[in-house]
């Protein structure tokens, strides 16, 4: 596409580099959504529209694609994303009990953000750390072998 006057500054300017990794602009959509999520915090309509405009894609298409993937957040989130696995391997090692701990301590329910805006909680399917379950991701950090005590200890290191 030779569209003159494409903006290269402003939000998501970094996408110009990412676009070079793919032969089509559409293919840059997922990395663009990751970038937008980092930049905007979550994928608001504003963020989605910015991605659409950067990649010359229809807005509805961008929203549809984003909504397919569970890690793209369609609503505002807390400062730290807590993603806890409750799939079979972690479940049999007690993951569900941890949800109760989080609810009690931080008022966190799955799919929700704590009232103080500190944590958002998402119940994950397997996160590939089954040998050391129960496990969770906080932002990009993997924490394993969680127990009621350890999960609190870990989360307290995130302000």
């Amino acid at each position: 596409m030779s569209e003159p006057g494409m903006v290269v500054e402003g939000p998501l300017a970094g996408l110009e580099e990412i676009k070079k990794q793919y032969p089509t602009e559409r293919a840059a959509l997922m990395p663009a959504l990751h970038a937008a999520q980092r930049e905007f915090g979550w994928l608001s309509h504003e963020a989605l529209a910015a991605v659409a405009s950067r990649l010359n894609l229809p807005e509805a298409t961008v929203r549809s694609t984003a909504s397919f993937y569970s890690m793209f957040q369609g609503k505002s989130t807390g400062r730290h994303a807590v993603r806890i696995c409750t799939n079979v391997a972690c479940m049999v090692l007690g993951a569900e009990g941890l949800l109760a701990v989080l609810n009690g301590l931080y008022g966190l329910a799955p799919g929700q953000t704590s009232p103080d805006g500190r944590f958002s909680l998402e119940v994950m399917e397997c996160i590939g750390a089954c040998d050391k379950g129960p496990s969770m991701l906080v932002n990009e950090d993997l924490h394993t072998d969680l127990s009621a005590e350890k999960i609190i200890e870990v989360l307290e290191t995130y302000e």
């Binding site: 529209a49 229809p58 509805a60 929203r63 549809s64 909504s67 397919f68």
Partner: peptide, 15 residues
């Protein structure tokens, strides 16, 4: 328009 969400929650909406 596009399909929003997935699985049983799929539904169709404009942007």
């Amino acid at each position: 328009i596009g399909v929003i969400d997935r699985g049983a929650g799929s539904h169709i909406e404009p942007f």
